[in-house]
Design a protein around this nucleic acid. Sequence first.
DNA 1: TACAGTAGAGAACGAGCGTTCTCCACGGCA
DNA 2: TGCCGTGGAGAACGCTCGTTCTCTACTGTA
Lengths: 189, 189
Amino acid sequence: MTTTTQGDAEARERVLEAADRLFYAKSAHAVGMDELRAEAGVSLKKLYSLFDGKEALVEEVLRRREEAITAATMKYVLRASTPEDQILAVFDWMADSSGTTDFRGCAFINSYAELGPSSERVTAVVRHQKSGVRGAIAAMVAATGRPEWVADSIFLLFEGAMTNTAITVSSEPARQAQVAARFLLEKTA
Amino acid sequence: MTTTTQGDAEARERVLEAADRLFYAKSAHAVGMDELRAEAGVSLKKLYSLFDGKEALVEEVLRRREEAITAATMKYVLRASTPEDQILAVFDWMADSSGTTDFRGCAFINSYAELGPSSERVTAVVRHQKSGVRGAIAAMVAATGRPEWVADSIFLLFEGAMTNTAITVSSEPARQAQVAARFLLEKTA
DNA sequence: TACAGTAGAGAACGAGCGTTCTCCACGGCA
DNA sequence: TGCCGTGGAGAACGCTCGTTCTCTACTGTA
């Protein structure tokens, strides 16, 4: 029946939203399915009818998070006028995001770290997302006509700033990374 | 009695060595105290007589790991002749370390990621170690007379390369970071 | 009103964890 | 030889987790 399918979609959305928030804030293994059930306002039965299990849920949360992050950064990127400023805008996004007290770094790196080599499926997702971010930066850098190693460098600055922003609980690393990226772009102009 | 204290010191060493290896390879929460006991060849009773519990053990492992990493990188750093090459040598260490199949990135970031905000004690240790690495790089850069933002940039490249080396399972990120660091040093000479 | 099927609440289950406790074998001393 | 205390092996405990199962209440239909 179409009505139940409609309700399922809504419940699914609520679960994924709650899972994304809780997994990111406390790390996935620290969030129980029952806590998740309560937060999403759904029954345990429905939870397991919507998803194959916790690992599948983690996988889907990571997949959706890439979309959300891409959308969020795009708002900053598209605001910039020059291609160079577009590249630098991703660090503005990071600096602003770190202002929220629950910023805990890169969700993909965190997932990789907490899972260890135990789940090849999730590791594959993490790898894929990372290459996506890298590809986005590479495309923007390529559009400015600069060599690929510049893109690689900016990507590494991005990664380093993500983890350090989380650990230091400040937007300073994001700003430092932006300074370095700007320098790279200027000297390779 | 001094003899038992002597034996305790040896057992303690074995436990810490095994814990460091297992925690790093599989993440701390995935290693049970019994697995650790077996690996270290020690009884559960002695394990708990030597350490106050798992969290205290994690703390001490992280503290010791900093010493070990510092020593390992120093071997590379001291081999270099110029101050600039000394800075770049840390990326040689990283590239070589990533050759071992069990390289899993920065142990401190991994600990931060898997623990979440649950243990402020361990987070404090992580923060301290990170500022140590950063300080070491800052000192080397300062010795060359370059401004502090260059040190910040190289530190972020270091961090980004550590995580990406682990995720991509290759030494490429370490090399890319070295290229970027060399560029920074040349252009700020 | 009687009934079938669905979905929610939450008990139940088996596994794994950190930690403690019990039991027993062994070695130094009278 | 008999005793005592130390330490090892591992059973036990209490807890939490992911997952499944049971029971009950409800809703739409004849």
